[in-house]
Amino acid sequence: MDFSLSDEQKLVVETARKVGERFDPTYWRQKDAAKEYPHECWQAICDAGLAGAMLPEEFGGSGLGMVEVALIIEELCAAGSGSTLAQIFMLNPIFGGVAISRYGSPEMKREWLPKLCTGELKFCMGLTEPDAGSNALEVRSVARADGNGWRLDGQKIWITGVPQADKMLVVARTTPLDKSPKKTFGLSLFMIDVNRQGLTHNSIDKLGTNTLPSSSVFFDNVRIDPEELIGTADQGWGQLLDVLNTERIVTTAGLTGTSRLSIKLAVEYANNRKVFGDKAIGSYQAIQFPLSQGWAEMEAARNLNLKAAWLCDQGLPFGSESNAAKLIASQAASGLAEQAMQVMGGMGYSKEMHAERLWRDARLFRFAPISEEMILNYIAMSNLGLPRSY
């Protein structure tokens, strides 16, 4: 068992570190305050060849694996952004790249993947609905046959990055639930233009991740052309899981980066802050122990996530590892960001210290993209052999 990085992986990590350092916590604080999409940062990531790390070389990517992607995301997020930057990787290399590279037509791959790698095309994904959150099989948006294409009606909610996206991966039923032989049959995936007649979206006001807007999306008789189908009609459930499984690894990598950044900010403050005499508060066990506990949890999540990424690259099952890593990472990141605020006392409540933004953003991932409770349900059934509880 070899935990060392190859020379190529070290180079990838160093490249990501240098890009990340160009966009420090102050950049992200300003973007957060203005609720602006980090266009400059994402373009720099694309220009460095990092956005296409796991995409095929023939379409402008680097042909690397999920291990390298996890390392890239962690390094970028640790430099200043925290967890929110990982979401942009979900939108583009995962929702766009994985879906197209694995299930898209040859024309889609030739036309769209190179533009994804260069940053010319941005993506989002329309999955969650008001009555279909964790239970994606309850999706009610319907794409009914219309000539050689479809007409889409329905609603999505909490869809990330819609205003900036050119394309949306939409999950809809092409066979309604009441006519499907089983719930997993009848779902289809489509890659459609965001700027299309009948598609509208409204912004949702929220606590954090302000650099990436969340929207309610409405489909009113939206035309879908036959060449916009991803994969096979009615067989989208397995394809969807294939896309979503890698999302866990991306999420955890971003949370690990958040944990690293939170520890760094807390330690820097604790080593310089003196309250009672000449001793820095970092010498107190009340400061040391919570940060040390968080570091241990962060490392556990990181190693489990890299194992999940390695299993993914080998074509082996990795659901248990990726879910457990995300569970630990989300708790560690949220806890460490809050602990950094606690170390800083009143200053931790100030936006200039950055910790409060890290906490606001990391808190989302205690229940997204999959909640702690659903992960524990999964572990109970898949790893412990306990009966289904829901």
Score class of each variant (00 low, 15 high):
residue 305 N to A: 01
residue 84 T to M: 06
residue 149 G to A: 13
residue 325 A to W: 00
residue 363 R to F: 10
residue 349 Y to L: 14
residue 164 Q to C: 05
residue 309 A to F: 09
residue 29 R to M: 12
residue 268 E to T: 00
residue 209 T to R: 07
residue 66 M to E: 02
residue 38 P to W: 11
residue 260 R to D: 14
residue 305 N to F: 05
residue 54 M to T: 11
residue 162 V to Y: 06
residue 285 Q to C: 08
residue 88 I to A: 04
residue 19 V to H: 00
residue 254 G to R: 13
residue 39 H to V: 08
residue 89 F to V: 07
residue 293 Q to F: 10
residue 96 G to N: 13
residue 98 V to K: 03
residue 130 P to G: 06
residue 334 S to C: 10
residue 97 G to T: 01
residue 27 Y to R: 03
residue 350 S to R: 10
residue 144 R to K: 15
residue 83 S to D: 08
residue 43 Q to I: 15
residue 23 F to Q: 00
residue 214 S to L: 09
residue 196 R to K: 15
residue 297 E to K: 10
residue 366 R to V: 13
residue 342 Q to R: 06
residue 320 S to Q: 03
residue 276 F to C: 08
residue 309 A to V: 07
residue 88 I to F: 09
residue 264 K to S: 00
residue 157 I to W: 04
residue 271 N to T: 03
residue 199 L to C: 08
residue 120 E to C: 06
residue 230 I to E: 05
residue 8 E to D: 12
residue 281 I to T: 00
residue 314 Q to P: 06
residue 256 T to S: 09
residue 4 S to Y: 02
residue 343 V to Y: 01
residue 16 A to I: 00
residue 98 V to P: 06
residue 217 V to K: 15
residue 206 K to W: 10
residue 336 L to M: 05
residue 201 H to L: 12
residue 359 W to Q: 07
residue 339 Q to S: 02
residue 145 A to F: 05
residue 185 F to M: 01
residue 6 S to R: 03
residue 73 I to V: 12
residue 126 G to W: 11
residue 269 Y to W: 14
residue 289 F to N: 15
residue 355 A to P: 05
residue 190 F to D: 08
residue 272 N to M: 09
residue 158 W to F: 11
residue 149 G to K: 13
residue 110 R to V: 04
residue 388 R to H: 15
residue 2 D to N: 15
residue 90 M to G: 11
residue 322 S to M: 04
residue 10 K to S: 14
residue 249 I to V: 09
residue 174 T to G: 10
residue 85 L to K: 10
residue 297 E to T: 11
residue 348 G to Y: 01
residue 255 L to Y: 04
residue 52 G to Q: 09
residue 113 L to P: 02
residue 81 S to F: 04
residue 9 Q to F: 02
residue 354 H to F: 13
residue 47 D to F: 11
residue 216 S to I: 08
residue 15 T to Q: 06
residue 285 Q to I: 13
residue 220 D to N: 07
residue 368 A to W: 14
residue 56 P to L: 04
residue 33 A to F: 11
residue 85 L to V: 11
residue 83 S to T: 14
residue 362 A to R: 08
residue 62 S to M: 12
residue 123 F to M: 06
residue 122 K to G: 05
residue 255 L to N: 05
residue 383 N to L: 05
residue 347 M to H: 11
residue 15 T to R: 02
residue 182 K to P: 00
residue 380 A to E: 00
residue 163 P to E: 13
residue 211 T to C: 07
residue 252 T to D: 03
residue 39 H to S: 07
residue 238 G to A: 04
residue 122 K to Y: 12
residue 329 A to G: 05
residue 75 E to N: 06
residue 48 A to Y: 03
residue 222 V to H: 04
residue 369 P to N: 12
residue 256 T to I: 14
residue 26 T to H: 12
residue 245 N to I: 02
residue 43 Q to Y: 06
residue 73 I to L: 02
residue 380 A to H: 07
residue 177 L to N: 07
residue 59 F to S: 09
residue 87 Q to K: 10
residue 257 G to H: 08
residue 310 W to Y: 07
residue 276 F to N: 00
residue 288 Q to M: 04
residue 245 N to W: 03
residue 204 I to T: 14
residue 105 S to V: 07
residue 272 N to A: 14
residue 81 S to K: 03
residue 227 E to N: 09
residue 372 E to L: 02
residue 199 L to P: 14
residue 1 M to V: 08
residue 55 L to D: 14
residue 387 P to M: 01
residue 97 G to N: 13
residue 205 D to A: 11
residue 126 G to E: 05
residue 5 L to Q: 03
residue 20 G to N: 07
residue 119 G to Q: 02
residue 257 G to S: 10
residue 357 R to N: 09
residue 308 A to F: 00
